[in-house]
Design a protein around this nucleic acid. Sequence first.
DNA 1: CCTCTTGTCAGAACACCGTTTCGATATGCT
DNA 2: AGCATATCGAAACGGTGTTCTGACAAGAGG
Lengths: 195, 195
Amino acid sequence: MPRPKVHDDALRARLLDRAGEILSTTGPDGLSLRALAADVRTSTTAVYSLFGGKPGLLRAVYDEAFRRFGERLSTAGTSDDPAEDLVRLGLRYRDSALADPQFYRVMFSGASGVEPGEESRRASARTFSPALDIARRGVETGVFGNDSPEQIALASWGIAHGLVALELRGDLPVDVPVAQVYERSLRALVDGWRR
Amino acid sequence: MPRPKVHDDALRARLLDRAGEILSTTGPDGLSLRALAADVRTSTTAVYSLFGGKPGLLRAVYDEAFRRFGERLSTAGTSDDPAEDLVRLGLRYRDSALADPQFYRVMFSGASGVEPGEESRRASARTFSPALDIARRGVETGVFGNDSPEQIALASWGIAHGLVALELRGDLPVDVPVAQVYERSLRALVDGWRR
DNA sequence: CCTCTTGTCAGAACACCGTTTCGATATGCT
DNA sequence: AGCATATCGAAACGGTGTTCTGACAAGAGG
């Protein structure tokens, strides 16, 4: 039999961790396989045997980021007021994104040819489902009008994503009180669905 | 005196044009200075003397893209119903983005370290002002309630940007009628501002 | 008319990247 | 002990953005 395996799951985890760290400070372009391998005291070959290459590595980080993001959103909690819950979920969306902007960027700004893949599709759907659940409750309980839960949830996702993306890119006018504008926007949108 | 100038404004324009074409089909990473220079039958040095390097070139394309985007939005036209105008502006925002997705990506997804710069800040502000004007009219005429025009315009910008970004990334569920959801979302948001 | 000076530009050189190839390695089996 | 073989680190390859350098061309001065 051959020599003992070194490119194992433990190494995979270490690479993933360190890649996430580098990525969250420098962005995808600043992540070099050579530097990463040296950091973890292995060779670039490890990245290829474990992830298939740089896109594979990024996809893995991306999947992990999406998983955590979905987890945060799914623990937002609910009350008996779906409209308020939707606002609260939106606020949590922003908090989660601002907690690690580079991760958010990797997830949603699609740099360096990161193709989602099956796993991430599911994670993406899971990210979306809390909003959908709340919207459904809102429609069922008659808080919202005649629109479909999908419609309502998508719009909420859209405005949260849009404002956060603009904020992270610094495209918002400098003097706006972002948090306040953000929350007020969510409320206006939610109010628009009321029956 | 030295030899006659070849790296002039005409060459600059040709480089910019061709860079835009390549960029709109392959994205920023697929744009190679060597290939670009060969296409325009000059050397890579031209890019450095005219744009300072690849980031400078991308920023120039970015500026141009933003300029055109702002132009399209500023010609959206107005009626005597600010609420409807805001929806129409949003629809035009999406049309403009979908007309050349790669340009939109360069503008808003911040790939390859494109730092906006002064010129683009102004262009960005100009992109935003049509929405602001409409919102102002809506507040003045009493169509909208007590919110500031900035608040209203920013929220509109946010939801348009967010939904378009999600659509372009393919992050929307595949079976949704995007155009319809998009318009309905805009209307819900606008309705939320009504007094 | 012929240097000479001087800014300009094309191409070579450099450092780095992601990826592929390949030879040394270290084990279990014969 | 020797062999077969999966494994992995290091070197090689083709590409990138960027910098360096030497050939160049035109006006100035003799």
